[in-house]
C-alpha cells in the first residue's frame, strides 16, 4: 500500500532531461525500446502467473489421477519451456541490440575524448587540437560520435541518458562509447557511479550543434 502510494509520487519527480525513456538519438532509442518490451513482457507474465495462481486456489482439493500429466504441462512446459523460450528470445534480441550499439568505423564518425576525475569532466577534440572544455561536451548533431572515455583517478561512469547507455571511465584504459543526437540542443550527462563525497555534483552537459555551429566550434569561434 505504502509503496503503491509513494512510487507514483516519487516518479513524478523524475525529469525528462535525465530520462532514458525520452531518447534523443538512435542508441538511446534502441535501449528504450528494449526497456519497454521487457516491461510489457514482464507485466504480461506476471498477470499470467497471478491468473494461474488464482485458478489453483479456486480449484482446491487433493491430488487426482491426472496430476502426472499436469506435472508435465506445468513444470516442464510452463516452468521450463516457457521460461527458457522467453529468456532465449530476450538474450538473442539483447545481443542483436548490443551489436548495433558498437562503435564501428564508418563515414562521418567524429571522435572526442572524455576524461573523468573527482569531480569534473574534461573534454578534448582531436579535430581541434588544443581545444579543451570542462563540464560541456560539444558534438555535431546528426552524426555518430565516438567518445573515448578514460579517468585520471578512480573509476567513473559516463552517462548521457537521452543519447546512449553508460560506460565506465577507467584509469589507464580507454573505453569507446558511440553516441548520436538527432537534433541540436543540450543534453544532460552525469557520472553514474558513486565516486566519493562530490558525487552529486559530478555532471556535465552535451551540446549538440548544427553543421555551421560545429564548424564554428572547431574553428574556435565559439567558447
Amino acid at each position: 500500500m505504502v509503496i503503491g502510494g509513494t512510487t507514483p509520487l516519487m516518479l513524478a519527480g523524475c525529469e525528462d532531461r535525465l530520462s532514458a525513456l525520452h531518447p534523443a538519438g538512435p542508441a538511446a532509442a534502441l535501449i528504450a525500446t528494449l526497456w519497454w518490451v521487457m516491461l510489457a513482457g514482464a507485466a504480461a507474465i506476471l498477470v499470467l502467473v497471478l491468473v494461474l495462481l488464482a485458478l489453483a486456489f479456486r480449484r482446491g482439493g487433493g491430488p487426482s489421477a491426472g496430476d502426472s500429466r499436469g506435472e508435465a504441462v506445468w513444470i516442464k512446459g510452463l516452468g521450463l519451456g516457457f521460461t527458457m523460450t522467453v529468456l532465449a528470445a530476450l538474450t538473442a534480441w539483447g545481443l542483436w541490440i548490443g551489436e548495433r550499439l558498437l562503435p564501428r568505423p564508418g563515414p562521418g564518425v567524429v571522435a572526442v575524448e572524455a576524461q573523468g576525475r573527482q569531480w569534473a569532466w574534461r573534454f578534448t577534440y582531436p579535430d581541434a587540437p588544443g581545444r579543451v572544455t570542462e563540464g560541456a561536451l560539444h558534438i555535431p548533431a546528426g552524426r555518430p560520435v565516438d567518445v573515448r572515455i578514460t579517468s585520471a583517478d578512480v573509476i567513473h561512469s559516463f552517462w548521457v541518458p537521452r543519447l546512449a547507455g553508460k560506460l565506465d571511465a577507467i584509469p589507464g584504459h580507454v573505453n569507446v562509447l558511440r553516441i548520436q543526437a538527432w537534433a541540436p540542443g543540450e543534453y544532460a550527462g552525469l557520472g553514474a557511479e558513486f565516486n566519493g563525497p562530490g558525487y552529486r555534483r559530478h555532471h556535465f552537459t552535451v551540446v549538440a550543434h548544427d553543421a555551421a555551429a560545429w564548424d564554428a566550434f572547431l574553428a574556435g569561434e565559439t567558447p
Partner: peptide
C-alpha cells in the same frame, strides 16, 4: 552452450 554463444555470435574487441 548458452553462456558461450556470445563468443561465437558477437563482435570481438569493439
Amino acid at each position: 552452450v548458452w553462456s558461450l554463444v556470445p563468443v561465437v555470435a558477437t563482435s570481438l574487441c569493439l
